[in-house]
Design a protein around this nucleic acid. Structure first.
Lengths: 191, 191
DNA sequence: ACAGATGTTAATAGCTGGTACTAAAAGTGG
DNA sequence: CCACTTTTAGTACCAGCTATTAACATCTGT
């Protein structure tokens, strides 16, 4: 019986810290109505680090995640690139990409994957999207492994037409046509 | 002269902590070749909190940012909404939204703002984007205050045509036409 | 050149939130 | 009742500080 009391306490310890990781042993001891030493033994048993270590790791982890999001993990991994002709990228759909209400991936992730791949394929120092025609064919859910394939269809002076098709399990779920303008040097208006 | 030496030191203190906020006073003292006490006076003067406080605030801030990103069903702030007819949202362009190379905002932010606003306007429990036609008219840079206005142009059964125009300083910079399908209940394919 | 201001270093006491260890007390099961 | 687990208590020690007081060091204006 006491063994199960212990297990229950250790589990609520884990849950409590998950909800609020900034609790000291003292606060935890009060909350669970045991002594500080018991909390420390429990932490030791469960391999839970002390408050300061927890805080530090949270800071580092969250920072890294933010950077990953800010940089380009959203857009998928570039798998293959034939500059000026074609490219392939892959994007894993994770739970935070879907709308809670429906479980369907937000459309702008596919758009971002397709658009950034299209820009990557263009063989120019600076390129901007001018026009995009997009068609969502099938809703996407968590766990989908989206494979985008971009192809430059036409090039005329500084304008490129790029087709991007996204497949999930070899089934086409999205397609887009981009008109992309490459800029020679300076900032310039887009048509 | 010593006053400027002090100022220089305090500035490199700030810069050093910006690069690596996890430095103790002792490490900082070694790096800047002064005593620990000097570092502490400098921190006091500049209002820089101690290592532990810095770490904690980083953890909290980053966590909040992550949650904000994760819960962003609507990209930008919804300013006005006339369900089934029109809506207005605002999005501030921050430095992490732009490509370093060019300083131009990544296209999918505008797409996300427009798309999510279009979906919000639809008066239906579940709605999915089917087709999007997008035109980028002017490149956007950091600091831009994007105001998107969506209007339902046509409704036919479960299909809606929504126009979204984004303006920056009252100048149109982006427009998109969405064909959106509202779903009655179940998960269903999109055309 | 010397007083007074400014800047730097040192020393000490006390705090938080721990680790590590030892030992006693309480509960529990056969 | 004894053996064993679990819990609590107590002590010594640590990092990384704050806060305060005091002694030097350096510079600056006159």
């Amino acid at each position: 019986m006491s063994a199960s009391k212990k297990r229950i306490r250790q589990e609520s310890l884990l849950k409590g810290l998950e909800k609020n990781p900034f609790l000291t042993d003292e606060q935890l001891a009060n909350a669970l109505e045991v002594s500080i030493q018991t909390i420390r033994l429990d932490r030791l048993a469960k391999g839970i680090p002390e408050l300061r270590e927890r805080t530090k790791h949270m800071a580092i982890d969250a920072q890294e995640k933010l950077q990953a999001i800010a940089s380009e993990d959203i857009f998928g991994q570039l798998i293959d690139l034939d500059l000026g002709h074609s490219g392939i990228s892959m994007l894993q759909v994770t739970p935070d990409m879907v709308l809670q209400k429906t479980g369907v991936a937000r459309g702008h992730y596919m758009f971002a994957q397709a658009n950034s791949l299209a820009l990557a394929v263009i063989d120019a120092p600076v390129a901007l999207t001018g026009v995009a025609n997009v068609k969502y064919k099938v809703p996407i859910y968590t766990g989908a492994n989206l494979v985008a394939r971009a192809e430059v269809i036409r090039k005329q002076n500084d304008k490129y037409i790029v087709w991007v098709k996204i497949r999930n399990n070899n089934k086409e779920v999205f397609r887009a046509k981009f008109l992309i303008v490459s800029l020679s040097e300076e900032r310039a208006g887009q048509k």
